[in-house]
Each structure stands twice: as structure tokens, then as C-alpha cells.
Design a binder for these strands. Structure first.
Lengths: 115, 115
DNA sequence: CTCTGCGTTCTGCTGGTAGCAGAACGCCCC
DNA sequence: GGGGCGTTCTGCTACCAGCAGAACGCAGAG
């Protein structure tokens, strides 16, 4: 009974965190400031800051507004996020089996309850 | 100058709609029932139904729980959704004819203001 | 040292809605 | 007719999205 639980951080990042990271990256690549994007998207600057830091859960309309203000489409955004998530996970669990989604993750409910 | 335009706005599907579609597709591919996934994810069956139909905005924890219950990772989910979104948009702009009863007024910024 | 620009974070506040239970309903197949 | 499956209606409560206003840290520039 060597492995009780992986007390290491559940490697899977949450959606809002990955999204925020990608949004920030995209904005900085464009050389925009928070206030620029916020104005264009029609939202407050504090709120955009929290979205980018993965603190708040933006609605689908918000996501569309920010993406539109950044000049990217949803599909591109998703692909970019997927890439980031992949890199993050590989970085963390370097020497485990490579991508095999068949494994039954032991704690789907646990994640929901944990947060 | 009057830069009014925007009447060419394709109805880019909202995040929650695309997500729901993909979740349902994944579940059906596995031959699971709503109640199976709901139980495994620890959520109610009505709510899962609404998520799959894109009617409610699930939190990141919910997404993780459902994805876990389906045995898929976030990255795979995102890529699948991106593909669906792409296909949808192509399908729409190719011939606008098919049964599209819902005249979705979904613009990025416009939606934020409307909401 | 001060000033300015940029982002972050704190304190509120309000409306909306996530998420649930319970039940009813339509549909299909036995 | 009955049972499995999904949908939808009516609530209901608790939580949080999303805002304004202001303050703060931290750079660099003068």
C-alpha cells in the first residue's frame, strides 16, 4: 500500500485558470494594456484582471467579448489553451505514461468537492 | 467615420453550447446514460442534461468533474470542441440554408452589452 | 524624492443564476 | 400497460458574477 493518494497537486489545471493564462498571453503579445481590452470588450478593468488570473468564472458571453476584443476566435483560443495544458501536464508528470485518456481518474467527484 | 458594419457577424457559438455538444457526444460514444455520468460526477441528472444542452454555465469544477466521469482530459476536450466549432462555422457560411430557426444575435461585444 | 502609468487588491453592493429536489411529461420499445 | 430514458416545469437557497470607487505596490522617468 505504497501509494495512498497522490498528495501532489491534481495535475489537471482548471478551465478558468488555463483560459486566463491564454487570454493574458494573447493580450501581451498584442502589446495591449488591460484598460484597452477592457474598454473594447465593455467590461471593467478589475474584472478583466481577475479573469486573466483565473480568479473568477467568466460567462460564455464574457469570453466571447474578451476574445473579440483580442481579435481571436473561440476555436483558436481553445487550441491554444489545449496546447498550454498539455505542456503544463507533461512538465509536471514527466515520466509517467504518455497521453492515455483511457485511465479511470479516481477522483472526478473529489475535484468538485475539493474546490 | 461611421463604422457601423457588423452585419456579417457569423453566429459564433458560445462556449457553453460548444462544450455541451461535445460532452454529449463523448457520453454517447461511450454508451453511457445521463444518470451514469451524473452519479460518477456527483451532480444531479437534470443539471447534467442542461449542461449538455448548453443552457447552464457550468463552473470549472463541474467541467472537471464531468470530464473526469467521462474519462477524458481537459486538453482533449478542448481540441474536440475547437474542431466542432470550426465545422459549425464552415457549415454555416457555406450554405446558410439549412434549418436554422434561431436567429442568434451573437456578436462578441454586443453580447456583453446585451447581457 | 515625486510623478505617472500599469496592474492588483480591498470593501462594499446588487441581481442573477448555479445547482438542487421533486415531480410530471413525452417518447420509444418490450 | 409498463419501464427506461431524457426533458422540462416549479420552486427554493446560497453563492458569486460583475460593477464602482479607492487604495496600494512597483516600476521607471523627471
Amino acid at each position: 500500500m505504497a501509494e495512498i493518494l497522490d498528495f501532489t497537486r491534481e495535475p489537471e489545471p482548471l478551465w478558468r485558470e488555463a483560459l486566463g493564462r491564454k487570454l493574458r498571453e494573447t493580450r501581451e503579445e498584442r502589446g495591449d494594456r488591460l484598460v484597452d481590452v477592457a474598454e473594447r470588450a465593455g467590461i471593467s478593468v478589475q474584472y478583466l484582471s481577475e479573469i486573466e488570473r483565473g480568479r473568477k468564472e467568466p460567462s460564455s458571453e464574457m469570453i466571447a467579448a474578451v476574445a473579440g476584443a483580442l481579435g481571436v476566435e473561440l476555436a483558436d483560443l481553445l487550441i491554444g489553451i489545449a496546447g498550454q495544458v498539455r505542456n503544463l501536464r507533461v512538465q509536471q508528470s514527466r515520466h509517467f505514461h504518455t497521453s492515455r485518456p483511457m485511465g479511470r481518474p479516481s477522483g472526478p467527484v473529489a475535484m468538485a468537492l475539493a474546490a
